[in-house]
Design a protein around this nucleic acid. Structure first.
Lengths: 220, 220
DNA sequence: CCTCAGAATGAATGATTGTTCATTCCCGAT
DNA sequence: ATCGGGAATGAACAATCATTCATTCTGAGG
C-alpha cells in the first residue's frame, strides 16, 4: 500500500505484476495456502471465495483448481498446514532438546502459546474457523484429532517429567494436560472474540497461575 | 422420520402438513431460529441456506425474509438467542437465590456447563460456529462480548463470595474467573471436536479439579 | 537460437442461492 | 355468514460462485 508508483517496470514480488511467471508446484501451493489463511482471517471462512484467494495471491482465477483439485481440497490442506505448524512448534519445545531446564521450558511453552506475534491473530482466526465447522465435518475432525492426540501425549509426558522432578503428590498428569490444553484454547478464544476484555499479558498471567498452582516449585 | 404414514389428514405439528397455518409473528420467529440452530449443528454455518432452514421448519421458501429482513439478520438473531440462553442459565445459578449453599451452587454450575443434555451438542456447535466467524465479523463480536461481560461479572462476584467464606489467600477472583471461563470454553471445544478422546465425565472431572485446587474447602 | 512440455490465464458456463412479489387463503371481527 | 387485513406461499429473477478448458506464454534443454 506504500510503494505503488507504477512509473516503470515493476518486478517486486508483492505488488501487481503483469508478467506471467512459472514456479514450482510446491511453491504455488504454499502461496495459495498463505493467501487462504489471510482471506479466512479477514473475511471469515464462510465468506471466502476462490476469486478472493487467487486475487489475494496475485494470480489468475483458475489456478487454485489447477494445483488443488477443488475448493474443498484447498480448505482442507490449509487446515492441515495450520494445525501441523502449531503443533509442531509446541512439540519442539516440549521435547526439550533445546532447553534442558524444566522451568525455562515451561516459560518457553507459555511464550509460544500466548506470546506476541503479529501473525498470531491470523492463525487463531483460521484455527477457530475450522473448529466451528468441525462439528459438522468429519474430515476436519479427523485432521485436528490426529495432530491433537500427538501433542496431548507429548504434553502429558512433559508434565510427568515435572511431577517426578518436583515429587508432586495427588496430581494426575493426564487430567492436568487436558485441563491445561483446554485452558489455552479457551484463552485463545477470549483473545480472538473479546480482545478488549482480555489482553495477551493477562492471558499469559492466567495460564501461568494455573501452572503455578500445579507446579509451585517450578514457577516462581 | 418415524411416523410418516400419509394415509389420512395429518394434523401433527412436526410432520409434513399441507394445510397452511397462520401463527403469531413471535412464534414463527422462534420456529425459524430453532430450525436455524438445527441446520447449523448438522451442516455447519457455512453450508446453511435459506431453503435449508425454511424446509427444516416445514415452511415455505420466502418466509424467512418475511419475518427477518435478510439471512444475515436471521443468523444474527439466532446467535443472540443462543448466547442469551446460555448465559441466562449460568447467571441464574450464580445469583444463587435458589441454592444458598456455596458448595452445592458450584456443583450446580458444573452440572449446567458440562452436564448431559441431548440438545447440548447442538448448542455447542452453534456456539463455536459463530466464534469461528467472530474474528472477521464485528457484529458477532459485539453480541458475544455483551452477554459475556455480564456473565463474567457474576462469576467474579460468585468467586469473591467463596473466597470470603473460605478465607482463601493469594487468590484473585478476576483472574480465577477468567481462567475458569476459559477452561470451560476449552473443554466444550474438546467435547465438540475430539469427543472420542474427551468424555463428558472426564471434562467435568477436570473442571472440578480446577475448582478444588482453588477452593479446597468447598470441593470435597 | 529454437522448441515444446506444461504452467498460467481468464472468459465462458452451469449450478446454486438470497430475495422479491403477485397470488392464495386463513381466521378473527363485524 | 362474509369480509378484509395480512400471513403464507412458491415460482421467477438477478447475482454470485466454483469449475472448466481453449488459448497464451514461459523457460529450461537441445
Amino acid at each position: 500500500m506504500s510503494d505503488a508508483s507504477a512509473t516503470a517496470e515493476d518486478t517486486s514480488p508483492d505488488t501487481v505484476n503483469k508478467r506471467r511467471q512459472i514456479r514450482p508446484k510446491a511453491e504455488r501451493r504454499q502461496q495459495l495456502i498463505d493467501a487462504t489463511i489471510r482471506c479466512i482471517a479477514q473475511h471469515g471462512l464462510s465468506a471466502v471465495t476462490m476469486q478472493m484467494v487467487t486475487s489475494e495471491a496475485g494470480l489468475s482465477a483458475g489456478i487454485a483448481n489447477l494445483h488443488f483439485e477443488s475448493k474443498e481440497n484447498l480448505l482442507r490442506e490449509t487446515l492441515r498446514f495450520v494445525a501441523e505448524e502449531y503443533h509442531d512448534g509446541q512439540i519442539e519445545i516440549m521435547e526439550g532438546s533445546r532447553i534442558p531446564n524444566l522451568s525455562e521450558r515451561l516459560d518457553a511453552l507459555l511464550d509460544f502459546q500466548l506470546g506476541r506475534g503479529v501473525t498470531q491473530r491470523q492463525k487463531m482466526s483460521v484455527w477457530f474457523a475450522y473448529y466451528g465447522e468441525a462439528g459438522a465435518r468429519p474430515v476436519y475432525q479427523k485432521i485436528v484429532s490426529t495432530v491433537d492426540r500427538l501433542a496431548a501425549q507429548k504434553l502429558e509426558a512433559f508434565f510427568t517429567e515435572i511431577i517426578l522432578d518436583g515429587q508432586y503428590r495427588d496430581v494426575d498428569p493426564r487430567d492436568l494436560a487436558t485441563g491445561y490444553s483446554a485452558l489455552i484454547d479457551g484463552l485463545h478464544l477470549g483473545l480472538l472474540v473479546t480482545p478488549r476484555e482480555l489482553s495477551k499479558r493477562r492471558a499469559r498471567s492466567v495460564a501461568r497461575e494455573f501452572l503455578r498452582r500445579a507446579f509451585p516449585q517450578h514457577i516462581p
